Simulated assay, not measured.
Amino acid sequence: MVTTLQKPADAAKLNSGKPPRQLNVPNDLGAKATQEITEAINPLVADAFALYIKTKNYHWHMSGSHFRDYHLLLDEHAEQIFATIDVLAERVRKVGGSTIRSVSHIAALQTVKDSNEEFVAPIDILNDLIGENKNMAANMRKAHEVCDDNKDVATASFLEVFIDETERRTWFLFEAAQRDAD
């Protein structure tokens, strides 16, 4: 039976971390750790989906004198962001939690702001993505703390790599924005 999520109020239930009995993967972290890690990582999965779509949106709708450079940069960034989704979602499952199940689940958990504007100037695109990537890195650091507190070194290790990649994206976007501002 397929059910649909009707309200964002269901977000807390969706991110409870407790999977159905059939999906309850055993681990040595314990139920409390599983729940805390799941509640820290699932919003990152949602944000990665949302940031991927936002980056691809800007990639598809880029215009201006630096079109080719920005178009290729954003495509590279989108691929890198997309690559984090499966790794993070599978970590949630490996520790015994339940992860993202639908677009409405993503919408309920995401902190990345959607961009539905018909046109966004290149400098505004770069600055928006700088802010979103900075927020993503900060949220990853918070999740890393949760993983550390629960002795989940594997998830923490992935987050360390993803934080570095996110900081690199922020740096490249910043430098591109400086070039555009000059």
Rank of each mutant, 00 (worst) to 15 (best):
D114N: 03
I53C: 04
I100T: 10
E165Q: 12
I123T: 09
A89H: 05
E132V: 10
I37K: 03
K54L: 14
T3E: 13
E117D: 15
A83S: 15
P8C: 00
V161A: 03
D124Y: 09
I163M: 01
P20W: 06
S16I: 01
A48K: 09
S98R: 07
E165N: 09
K7N: 11
V120Y: 12
S16H: 05
A9P: 06
F158E: 04
R179T: 11
S115D: 15
R91K: 04
V95P: 07
V161R: 01
A137Y: 02
N27I: 03
S98V: 13
S63L: 10
I163Y: 00
L51T: 11
N116W: 06
T170I: 05
P8Q: 03
D75L: 09
A48L: 06
T84Q: 08
P43D: 09
I81Y: 01
Q110F: 04
N133Y: 05
F172P: 00
L109N: 02
D182F: 02
V120I: 14
E117F: 08
D28Y: 08
L126I: 04
K7D: 15
R68H: 11
V2D: 01
V112D: 02
H144L: 09
F67G: 12
S102T: 10
R168L: 11
V2A: 06
N133Q: 06
Y52V: 03
F49A: 01
S63P: 03
A33R: 09
R168Q: 14
V2E: 08
V112P: 00
